[in-house]
Amino acid sequence: MPAPITVADLNPHDPRIVRQIETYFRSNNVAGGKFNHYKPAAVLMREQNTVMPNISSATLARAEQLFSRINDLLT
């Protein structure tokens, strides 16, 4: 299993996290240089009872704020 990606591995000048991860995958020949951002979402949904207790309250609050802002833009 590859080492976890750290913040230091990513480009802070690129505002898109998916693009940062894709760049890391290409540069480090991970998964053929392709990042499938649907897979982490699928794992989170499938294993949420195991994963959710390990997510900090600060992270959950930021996610809630993000979805609230998105919903406000859609209404």
Rank of each mutant, 00 (worst) to 15 (best):
M1D: 05
M1Y: 02
M1T: 03
P4D: 06
I5V: 11
T6I: 04
T6W: 10
A8K: 13
A8V: 03
P12D: 11
P12G: 08
H13G: 14
H13V: 08
H13M: 04
H13C: 08
H13S: 15
H13P: 00
R16D: 12
I17T: 15
V18F: 13
R19H: 01
I21V: 15
T23S: 10
R26D: 00
A31C: 13
A31P: 00
A31L: 08
A31D: 10
G32D: 04
G32S: 02
G32N: 05
G33N: 07
G33F: 06
K34P: 00
K34R: 07
H37N: 12
Y38S: 09
K39C: 03
K39H: 13
P40E: 12
P40M: 05
A41L: 14
V43E: 11
L44Y: 14
L44I: 09
M45C: 08
R46K: 15
E47L: 10
E47H: 13
E47A: 11
Q48S: 14
Q48C: 09
T50K: 12
V51F: 10
V51K: 11
V51Q: 10
V51T: 03
M52K: 05
P53M: 12
N54Q: 13
N54H: 14
I55A: 11
A61R: 07
A61F: 00
A63K: 08
A63I: 14
L66E: 00
S68R: 02
S68T: 04
R69W: 05
N71R: 09
D72C: 05
L73T: 12
L73H: 14
L74G: 04
L74F: 08
T75I: 14
